[in-house]
Every structure is written in C-alpha cells, then in structure tokens.
Simulated scan of single mutants.
Amino acid sequence: MRDPIYILGAGPAGMAAAYRLTQLGFPVVVVEREEGVGGLAKSIRYQGFILDYGPHRFFTKIPAVLELWNQVLGSEQVTVRRLTRIYYRKQYFQYPIQAWEVLRKVGWWESLPIVLSYLWAQLIPRPAPRNFADWVKGKFGTQLYSHRIWQVNFDNDYQE
C-alpha cells in the first residue's frame, strides 16, 4: 500500500486535487484548520441566514477543469451573470477593459504612454515571468504596471 498524499486546505483547489487523486487510486488525507470544507468559497449559517465567507466566483477556459466541476456539483451548481469592474481614480471601468471607455475617462494624454507600452509588450515578448509583476508587465506593459491598478489587498482578519 502506498503512503497517503497529504493536501493542505479543503478549499476548491485542495478538494479538486483530492478528488482527482482518489480517482487515480492514490490514498489521500486532506488537512483543514477550519471545521468545514470550502476555504474562501464556503458559506456559513448565521442567525438563519446563509452568508458567503468569501468570493464564490469560478471561471475557467480549461475544458477539463470545467468538466470536473460540472461532474462534482451537478444540479447544485448555480450560474449567474457576473459584473466585474475596476475602480480607479474614483471611477468604475468595465472588465474586460473597453478601450474607448478608458480613453474617455482617463484622457488621451495619460492613455497614450499606456497604449504605447502595451504595444511594445506585445511586439517584444518578455521571457517566462518569474513572478506576478513580470507577468503583468509582459501582458499589459510597464506603464500600466506602474499605475498598479491591478493590486489587490490580501489582508484578512484571521488571527491564530
């Protein structure tokens, strides 16, 4: 008998890994510090209400991943239209980015260096990114990277 594979975290990624590994015949142990599974995608019951602990958005362009989630969730999966926007300089911008909206809201003078930097990044691809900053620069150009509109606050209130 094989030694088990230990998976840290019972969020969607950990549970998907455990599910697939058990399908392949591997023994698996999932280690989770919380009482239930779900990670940031779980829901909790509070005073008769069901509250989302974190984001429940799932998106993929990978057919095998989509097939796995459809297989596991079946009829319990709920599909809704999503609205994603970027908040920058006290204005909302549609996502995916709409070029004319950006030009109208940000202005030509500020947009021009961003567009030129983006075109440069497309014409002269960077080597494989070593980190997220390299990926952003390679995908969108150094000018947009320097504005740091992509930064997300990952702080949370969890304390041990």
Score class of each variant (00 low, 15 high):
126 R>Y: 06
16 A>R: 02
32 E>K: 05
97 I>A: 10
136 V>A: 08
23 Q>A: 14
107 G>S: 09
118 Y>D: 02
72 V>M: 05
105 K>Y: 02
38 G>K: 01
143 Q>H: 08
7 I>Q: 02
38 G>C: 08
25 G>P: 07
22 T>H: 01
159 Q>I: 15
131 N>S: 01
137 K>M: 15
16 A>L: 13
48 G>N: 05
135 W>M: 04
143 Q>E: 14
98 Q>W: 01
133 A>V: 11
98 Q>F: 07
109 W>T: 11
108 W>V: 10
57 R>D: 07
95 Y>C: 08
152 V>C: 00
153 N>I: 10
138 G>Q: 04
133 A>K: 11
54 G>Y: 13
118 Y>F: 15
119 L>W: 15
120 W>A: 08
46 Y>K: 15
55 P>L: 12
75 S>M: 02
135 W>F: 15
48 G>F: 00
140 F>R: 03
26 F>L: 02
16 A>M: 12
46 Y>F: 12
70 N>R: 15
53 Y>I: 01
81 R>L: 09
32 E>H: 04
45 R>G: 11
64 A>M: 05
134 D>A: 11
65 V>D: 09
125 P>H: 08
133 A>Y: 06
44 I>F: 05
81 R>S: 13
104 R>S: 12
131 N>C: 10
31 V>A: 09
72 V>A: 09
37 V>P: 03
138 G>N: 06
110 E>Q: 10
92 Y>D: 14
105 K>Q: 12
13 A>F: 07
26 F>M: 06
38 G>W: 02
109 W>F: 08
100 W>H: 08
97 I>Y: 04
139 K>D: 00
126 R>E: 12
154 F>K: 07
156 N>P: 03
28 V>E: 04
82 R>N: 10
50 I>P: 04
28 V>F: 11
134 D>K: 03
53 Y>C: 07
26 F>W: 13
58 F>Y: 14
42 K>V: 07
149 I>Y: 09
89 R>M: 12
51 L>A: 03
4 P>G: 08
90 K>N: 15
93 F>E: 11
67 E>R: 08
120 W>P: 00
41 A>Y: 05
121 A>P: 01
61 K>T: 11
61 K>Y: 14
96 P>L: 06
71 Q>I: 01
153 N>C: 13
100 W>G: 07
14 G>P: 02
105 K>N: 10
155 D>W: 10
57 R>H: 09
153 N>M: 07
121 A>K: 01
106 V>H: 04
133 A>E: 13
26 F>A: 06
1 M>W: 00
17 A>Y: 02
136 V>N: 05
105 K>T: 02
29 V>S: 12
39 G>A: 10
75 S>Y: 09
125 P>F: 02
21 L>R: 06
33 R>T: 05
108 W>F: 14
40 L>G: 07
144 L>C: 07
142 T>M: 04
60 T>I: 09
108 W>A: 08
77 Q>K: 13
72 V>F: 10
147 H>L: 15
89 R>P: 00
142 T>N: 09
10 A>C: 06
70 N>W: 12
80 V>Y: 03
